[in-house]
Each structure stands twice: as structure tokens, then as C-alpha cells.
Design a protein around this nucleic acid. Structure first.
Length: 578
RNA sequence: CGGGGCGUAGCGCAGCCUGGUAGCGCACCUGGUUCGGGACCAGGGAGUCGGAGGUUCAAAUCCUCUCGCCCCGACCA
């Protein structure tokens, strides 16, 4: 592509509404433009990256034996109504009506639709295993779109669905997808961790996330420094020492006046006691927003003062689908005190206590009376509760599987794979006949990759102060030729290199604009093509051009390559990196 | 939805408190000098001040409503 004819509207200043690196660089480099919240134009360069990622995903999915299909984005409500998700999905579902008043929605994910294909087309155990996938635009009315391409209301996703005859066979399909995903993320040049995760609203028995490591990531994950244990912090657990009596003599319970100091931090400083001697008591409302038999209840969750509650684990311990931190009014009602002074002593209602908190002796707790705390509180004597694993893992915690320590990382969820079981097939009557003429529901799995999100994710992981540093496999162009000046030999050399590279299937962008060199270099760094070739009169006088990989940090450092060799050298290096 | 903030030229912003002429930088156009890391000089074009209503002789500025956008939380590829 000739730069002078391309739509690459780079800008010097960061857009005011961009909060993260990838968003800023995508806009500054002229890759994308915002149309509305969570909706973006992909300009030519942005689309090239998107297509390259898409093609790698497609190649690896095809290689795994999966078959590509395409389902509609516009869907009649009946399928989601069949499984109950029409109600469960809530506000996130984009709903619309047709001219006759019929109910429709835009697809946020396609389990129901693909299950409908399966129940119509899969009859026999001989038809499986089968894996169907599509690369398609998804629509979710996110409560809060953010981070440019990282979280959109309209986004491109690869979603795959496996169909098997048994849970064991489904595990094999799951494992095959796990390996396929590894190949995909490896080829994309992304550093990731596979972590245990919460299946969430999609449902299912087993799930793993492919977390692309990035400090700006929304997700927190923990990974063991010794074994291969890794989990999303949402469900991560830690090894807790067994509950043994350490021999500390129980003190008498006391009541202290702690005016206006509610937080653990403040009370800890006020009473000059370490946070580990505190019990943090939080009032939760347990239940399910969309549960028809809405069994809501107030629950007190107790963790050690230096720990935090893991809400997903708490919900699991309670056997409900979700828990919500109670609002101030409910806290008042439940404890009779202002927020900050809740405690388990005398609390009327269910109490769940974390394993670590259960071991604390002579603890400080809220007194369920505004401006007062108890000291010398002991479980068993002063209160008791159901012991469960309900705390958030943190840096340095002992690994649950070995003797190693957990380390925390930030990540961006690039892919998520699930074993769904028969949740959708049973609800929708997708069955097959086995070799004994018996009917069973199909066992399903589903596998997602956020294609458009990966464009941004790659930048979060590959950039420097000057701009993007694309991995070769997904760079919009492999080579960026910068011609300095308009001397005839310079232009002729560039033209020949440009033609030679294109003939070798190397994607090449030639900055042939009538701009000063500084402008061209700045744009080249911003755009981030992996190899830059500078052709100028100076080096050319000695028969050389300059070659600089984008990853070379020194802006002035470039390798001199004879004109006769440059095309071959570039072809070799690009191919080696693919 | 809870909390915070912002809408003024294509982009980034000032002006608003204390009402009276819409301004700066970048980008763009013309001419000239420049030309290896975002040049300089001179001239020029470009704005329903997000929208509606109100107060006032007079509103970008004050008041009310409304729409859009961003950030922090709960949700997710």
C-alpha cells in the first residue's frame, strides 16, 4: 500500500476519552474511530489486524476438525425463551420488535441457536463428536462499555460448540479445544495463563479462561510459583492451616468506644492492634434476582481483618447464585448499627465464617452498636457460624495444591472454554440415539474468543512510549518502507523493493508521502509495523538501506543491508517470525 | 443502576465563578524558506458553544429539564 493514497489518519494528541494504552494508540494510529459508546469503525489498518487474527483463529479451528458455520445475529425470542435466558439475561440483551410486534433480540452468544441445529440434525451417536463454530458479530448491552475495543457493545467473537455422547467424550473435546487455543494464542504472539474460572451465566461444569497478561487487565488471577495451579481470583482458593488450638488463653470480652472509626484500617490504628486480630463482618443479601422462588436472606460473612470476601465463593457456600453487599438501610436493619460496626456477637441470622477467621482468638469485632467494638471475642463462646472457604486469595498465600506460593497477576480474558454438560440440550430436547436404541441428551461444550478484543489486547502487551509493536503474525503490514527525500535512486530502490516484497506475499506499506523524515519516523513508530526499511541518499550512496525492527529500542540504531540483499533478508525474517 | 466528571472549530483545550466582542494550540488551504526524529514565516477558511425551556435589555456564562460521552463499582469475549 502506498501511504500517500491510504486512509491512515494519525493524530498527535491522545483522544480525551481514551483511558488505556490500546485505545489511545488505536485512535492515534488511525486504526479505529468511535461511533458511539462501545461501537467503533475499523479503518483500513484496524480491519487488516482484525482479519489477520480472525484468519489465524479460523486456520487453527479448521485444523482441529471444527466446522465453520454462520448463524444469524438477529434472532427470534423463542429460543432464549425455551431455556429461560430471555428473562435471565436481563438488560444485557438487545431486544427489538418487528413490524408485526414479534419479539426479537440481537445474539449475545449462540448456545440456544446452535442447540437448535443439533436437535434437528444430530440423531445418532455416530454423528459425534462434532464441533461447529462461527466468527460473528455479537451484541451485548453492557452496563459499562470501556477501554476502547476491550469492552464493546458490538464485537467480533469466535464461538464454537462441541457435541458429544458422554461427559468423558466432552472432556476430550474440551481438551482438544484447550490445545487449539494454546496454538492460537501462541501464534498471535500473546503471553497468557490458562486459569480455572467461574462458569458464570453461561453455566456448565468445567471452565477455563485464557488470560492475556497485562497490567491494565480487568481481571485478577493467581498462579502458583511452583506448580501449574492458576485460577481467576473469583474462584481461587488457598491452603489454610488446620484449625488447631494455639494455646492462646481466652480473654474476657470487652467493649470499647470507637467513635466514628468503622473501617478495619481506622480501628486497627485506633486500638493499636494488628489487622489479623480483627474479624471483618459484612452483611450480604443472598439470592437470585431472577429466581421465581426468590429465597432472599440476610447473611453475615466473617473474614479475618486483613482478608477480603470472595463473593462467588460465598454464594457457592450458601447454595445461591449470587450475593449482593447489603445497602446501608439493610445493614442498619440487620445489625442495629451504622455501617462499620457489624459483628457476629449477638447477630440474629445466618453467619458464614472463613476458615482463617474461624481460627482468630481474642478478636476485635463490631459490637452491632454504632461507635462501639468488642475486644476479646472468641468463637464458640461468644458466637459461632458455619465455616467455609469464602475469602479472596492474595499475593503470597500458600498454593492449595503444593508447597508453593501464589502470585497475583492482572489479565484480560481473551478466551473462555466451558463444558456445558446437558444444560441446553436437555432444556431444548437435543438428544441422540445410542447403540442400544436409547435416547440421551447431547453433552455440549462451548468455546469463545473475543477477536476484536484481541486487537486491543495485543497492543496492551506490545507497545512502547512511541507506539505499537505488532507481533509479525497480526501486523497490518510486515514491512514499512520510509523513503527520505525524493532523489531518483531512492525512489527507484524503494519501488523495486516494494514490488519484490509484494511478489513474495509480504505485506508492505511504503511511506511515499512528501513529508519531512521526522514526521515519517514518528508515524512509523506509532503504527508499529515489525520491520522498517529506511531508504535515503546517504546510505544508498554506499549501496545500502537501513533495516530496523520495531522492537529495537534505540531509535537511531539500524542495520545496514546491501540493496541487493534487502528483499531476501526481509522475506526470510518475516517468514521466520510467522 | 449507585458515585464522580465532561460536552465550546476535525482533534486537544481556555473562556463560565463575576452575563455584554467566541479565543488558543494542532490539523486544513495559499505563498515562501526548509528537509535524517512530529520545521519556520506570512496570510486564510472553518464553531447551531450537545438539545429544549426559563430568567434577563442581553446567556457559552445563571436556573430547570433532557440527550450524549468518560472514569470508579456490580457484569463479561
Amino acid at each position: 500500500m502506498l501511504y500517500s493514497r491510504a486512509l491512515i489518519p494519525t493524530v498527535k494528541e491522545a483522544p480525551a476519552d481514551a483511558a488505556n494504552v490500546s485505545h489511545t494508540l488505536l485512535v492515534r494510529g488511525g486504526y479505529i474511530r468511535k461511533v458511539g459508546a462501545g461501537m467503533y469503525d475499523f479503518l483500513p489498518l484496524g480491519l487488516r489486524v482484525l482479519r489477520k487474527i480472525e484468519n489465524i483463529v479460523r486456520e487453527e479451528m479448521d485444523r482441529s476438525g471444527a466446522q465453520e458455520i454462520l448463524m444469524p445475529a438477529l434472532l427470534p425470542a423463542e429460543f432464549f425463551k425455551e431455556t429461560g435466558r430471555w428473562d435471565l439475561y436481563g438488560e444485557t440483551l438487545f431486544r427489538l420488535k418487528d413490524r408485526k410486534g414479534g419479539e426479537f433480540h440481537l445474539g449475545p452468544t449462540h448456545e440456544e441457536i446452535v442447540t437448535d441445529i443439533a436437535r434437528r440434525e444430530i440423531r445418532s451417536f455416530r454423528d459425534m463428536p462434532m464441533n461447529l463454530y462461527q466468527i460473528q458479530t455479537k451484541f451485548r448491552d453492557e452496563p459499562r462499555p470501556r477501554g476502547g475495543l476491550l469492552r464493546c457493545r458490538e464485537f467480533l467473537m469466535k464461538d464454537a460448540y462441541s457435541f458429544d455422547t458422554s461427559e468423558e467424550a466432552a472432556k476430550e473435546s474440551f481438551e482438544k479445544m484447550r490445545q487449539t487455543y494454546c496454538r492460537i494464542f501462541d501464534r498471535l504472539g500473546l503471553t497468557y495463563r490458562i486459569v480455572d474460572a467461574d462458569p458464570g451465566a453461561i453455566g456448565g461444569s468445567k471452565s477455563a479462561e485464557f488470560q492475556i497478561l497485562a497490567d491494565s487487565g480487568e481481571d485478577a488471577i493467581v498462579a502458583c510459583d511452583t506448580c501449574d495451579y492458576a485460577a481467576n481470583i473469583e474462584i481461587a482458593t488457598v491452603k489454610e492451616p488446620p484449625l488447631v488450638d494455639d494455646g492462646e488463653a481466652p480473654e474476657d470480652r470487652g467493649k470499647v468506644h470507637t467513635p466514628k472509626v468503622g473501617s478495619i484500617e481506622d480501628v486497627s490504628a485506633f486500638l493499636k492492634k494488628p489487622k489479623e486480630k480483627f474479624l471483618k463482618s459484612l452483611v450480604y443479601v443472598a439470592g437470585t434476582a431472577n429466581d421465581p422462588e426468590d429465597k432472599r436472606g440476610i447473611v453475615l460473612a466473617v473474614v479475618r481483618g486483613d482478608h477480603d470476601v470472595n463473593e462467588i465463593r460465598l454464594a457457592r457456600a450458601l447454595g445461591v447464585s449470587e450475593v449482593f453487599l447489603a445497602n446501608d438501610t439493610d445493614v442498619q436493619k440487620a445489625t442495629g448499627a451504622a455501617v462499620g460496626f457489624a459483628g457476629p456477637v449477638g447477630f440474629e441470622g445466618k453467619i458464614v465464617v472463613d476458615r482463617a477467621a474461624a481460627a482468630v482468638k481474642n478478636a476485635v469485632t463490631g459490637a452491632n452498636e454504632t461507635d462501639y467494638h468488642f475486644t476479646g471475642v472468641n468463637r464458640g463462646r461468644d458466637w459461632d457460624g458455619e465455616i467455609a472457604d469464602i475469602r479472596l486469595a492474595t499475593d503470597g498465600d500458600p498454593c492449595p495444591n503444593c508447597t508453593g506460593k501464589l502470585k497475583t497477576y492482572r489479565g484480560i480474558e481473551g478466551g473462555h472454554i466451558f463444558i456445558l454438560g446437558t444444560k441446553y440440550s436437555a432444556a431444548m430436547g437435543a438428544t441422540f440415539t445410542d447403540d442400544k436404541q436409547e435416547k440421551h441428551p447431547i453433552v455440549m461444550g462451548c468455546y469463545g474468543i473475543g477477536i476484536s478484543r484481541l486487537v486491543a489486547t495485543a497492543i496492551e502487551q506490545h507497545h512502547d512510549a512511541d507506539g505499537i509493536r505488532w507481533p509479525v503474525s497480526i501486523a497490518p503490514y510486515h514491512v514499512h518502507i520510509v523513503t527520505v527525500g525524493k532523489d531518483e535512486p531512492v525512489l527507484a530502490t524503494a519501488k523495486k523493493l516494494y514490488d519484490d516484497l509484494r511478489a513474495s506475499n509480504i505485506d508492505v506499506l511504503w511511506d511515499d508521502r512528501d513529508e519531512r523524515p521526522g514526521v515519517k519516523f514518528k508515524d512509523a513508530d506509532l503504527l508499529g509495523m515489525p520491520f522498517r526499511v529506511t531508504i535515503g541518499a546517504k546510505a544508498l550512496a554506499n549501496g545500502n538501506v537501513e533495516l530496523k525492527p520495531r522492537t529495537e529500542p534505540d531509535p537511531k540504531k539500524a542495520e545496514l543491508v546491501p540493496v541487493a540483499d534487502i528483499a531476501r533478508v526481509l522475506v526470510e525474517r518475516v517468514r521466520a517470525a510467522l
